[in-house]
Amino acid sequence: MKQEWPLWEVFIRGQHGLSHRHVGSLHATDAEHAIQNARDVYTRRKEGVSIWVVPAADITASSPDDKGSLYDPADDKVYRHPTFFDIPDDVGAM
């Protein structure tokens, strides 16, 4: 079996100052090649101003079985969301 170009995950930051967002994957031989490929594959429509690439093999993911313990506790902390608080309209924008 011939060796294959490694898989990379691509993250792109758009023009509006938001965080880098995962947009997809691609194959490339090293980081520089991955950046060039990402530019060609994932910014054909001017989607971004900054690119991160990460070898897919280097990503450590949380285990799906931990979903409950990791995320459920946040469910009842509704006070973390701005819509929890009723502010009278007279106060204006907040």
Partner: peptide, 11 residues
Amino acid sequence: PALEEDIALAN
């Protein structure tokens, strides 16, 4: 030779 190169050439 590879999809990534195909796309780059077209660009």
